[in-house]
Design a protein around this nucleic acid. Structure first.
Length: 471
RNA sequence: GGCGCCGUCGCCAAGUGGUAAGGCAGAGGUCUGCAAAACCUCCAUCCCCGGUUCAAAUCCGGGCGGCGCCUCCA
């Protein structure tokens, strides 16, 4: 499969370095608050990348996604809440996991935390290697990475160093750097802050070191195959990760760099706390939208394009998903038949087109288009009676094939198993309505239908009887 | 100031040299007690101006407009 490599600024054919195993590190959430829908755009896209590698290419994927559970923000917020750091971040890790399940993210192989002891040891070990290689200096108990010792620094971000004006922005993490571009590897203990002493002096890790150390520890050393995250991490985070890792090991850190563009709010541009336009997954659900609709919206725009999020887009996504699910439900009503059809050939074409779309730099909008073409073909075949029982099985398998990668039908189904009205009550009301209809008491029949609609249940009369679905 | 991205039907969005996928919304029709669903039909020449080419939404140049990054950030 091909995808865009930020390192080379080109689309490239991806093949793992070691046999069939893909070793992938994806930057996870800083667990000081609930993840917002922009965070989850990245995570959903990375989930699709993972699924495509796994199910379309058949690779054995080993993915590591970290939780950043110690940094300025986690420390400040845990202090405000009066909870110990670990306990405070535990809450947001749980919350993230709940949101991840709702959005259909596959569990990854490893989810390390920066403050796990083994990881802190890996970080201090890497810092010691950097010191030995002459890439560091100490100042007031903190250890800094000296960028002037890495001539190739800046390869990923391709920034013009001369253009960076020292002091243009306030750096909360700055202590006494010799050069504005230098960054902290290990921060000296501050009053009231958590601290660890594993060989490089007491303090806590800088932001970038955790990812380098954990990636190399959990993915069997450099170079790893893929390193991924949101575009905003290109600089400085990923650039600095490269400097640290390559300064410590002398070997390329990651072969491919995969970055997901930002989600923007329709009007306000980038989400930001100060503007007050940050929405969490919980906010979306509280407004009455379903997680499946959110996942669909996130897949409906190519991952390298900015996604302008609007509430209307969620409504449109919900309608599209309804159409998809209706088609699946209809398959259950197809009568037994062994007619000769051309469905098999059409299935093959759709599968091939879908796979080609996904393998061409993860073109999810294009893949959705293929799936909806397929929906129309299936609906038309059912209407025409030109679909055999074995075709039905094949069609179901094909939707499953699409959804292994898209992951949207499965969460929609899970949502549908818990309708807003108890199933027994729905079925009783359908029975009442059927009786009313046979008595030609359409007033009563319509009232039952309207009342259920108000409660979020839609009724549809068909030749095989009445069926219901969640609105 | 430096680097980069984007501008396709009312809305969302693929396509990146060979004559415009798909979804939502809309119009007409079939079906239905009425609806709903489904199907059929209809609905764009791609921000503007030049240029290259037999051929451009797709390449080049110039505008106009929107956005991102330049050490908080997915």
């Amino acid at each position: 499969m091909r995808f865009y490599n930020t390192l080379t600024r080109r689309e490239e054919e991806f093949v793992p370095l070691r046999g069939r195993q893909v070793r992938m590190y994806t930057c996870g959430l800083t667990v000081y608050a609930y993840g917002h829908i922009g965070n989850f755009r990245t995570f959903v896209c990375l989930d699709v990348l993972r699924r495509a590698l796994k199910y379309l290419e058949g690779y054995d994927v080993r993915q590591v996604m970290n939780y950043t559970d110690v940094d300025d923000r986690t420390i400040i917020e845990s202090e405000k809440s009066g909870l110990p750091l670990r306990e405070y971040t535990d809450r947001y890790i749980s919350a993230f996991q709940e949101d991840a399940v709702r959005l259909g993210l596959e569990p990854v192989e490893e989810t390390p935390r920066a403050t796990d002891e083994a990881n802190l040891h890996a970080m201090t070990g890497m810092i010691e290697a950097l010191e030995k290689n002459g890439h560091t200096y100490r100042s007031d108990g903190s250890i800094y990475f000296k960028i002037s010792t890495m001539p190739q620094y800046g390869q990923l971000a391709r920034l013009d160093h001369e253009g960076i004006k020292p002091g243009a922005r306030v750096d909360a993490d700055r202590y006494d750097k010799e050069d504005a571009r230098d960054f902290v590897l290990w921060k000296a203990t501050q009053p009231g802050e958590p601290t660890w002493d594993y060989g490089v002096g007491p303090g806590r890790p800088g932001w970038h070191i955790e990812c380098s150390a954990m990636a190399l520890r959990l993915l069997d050393g450099p170079p790893i195959d893929i390193h991924a995250g949101g575009v905003d991490l290109v600089f400085p985070h990923h650039e600095n990760e490269i400097a640290q890792s390559e300064g410590a090991t002398g070997t390329q850190f990651s072969r491919f760099w995969f970055h997901v563009e930002h989600l923007l709010l329709g009007e306000g541009g980038k989400m930001s706390k100060s503007v007050g336009n940050v929405f969490t997954v919980r906010d979306v659900l509280e407004k009455g939208f379903r997680a499946s609709a959110l996942r669909y919206v996130l897949l409906s725009v190519h991952y390298r394009k900015q996604l302008k999020f609007t509430w209307d887009s969620l409504s449109q996504a919900d309608e599209a998903l309804t159409r998809l699910m209706d088609c699946l439900v209809r398959l259950d009503t197809v009568p037994q038949s062994d007619v000769e059809t051309t469905v098999t050939e059409k299935v093959e074409v759709s599968r091939r087109d879908f796979s080609e779309m996904m393998k061409a730099d993860l073109n999810t909008p294009g893949a959705l288009g293929v799936m909806f073409d397929f929906v129309r073909m299936v609906n038309a075949a059912i209407d025409a009676g030109e679909i055999s029982s074995s075709d039905v099985t094949l069609v179901r398998e094909t939707f499953e094939y699409f959804d292994q990668v898209l992951g949207v039908i499965r969460i929609r189904r899970a949502e549908d198993t818990v309708p807003p009205v108890p199933v027994e009550e729905i079925e009783k009301l359908i029975g009442d309505r059927k009786a009313a209809r046979s008595n030609r008491d359409f007033t009563k029949a319509d009232r039952i239908r309207d009342e259920l609609a108000e409660r979020g249940i839609m009724l549809e009369d068909g030749s095989a009887g009445t069926r219901w679905k969640r609105k």
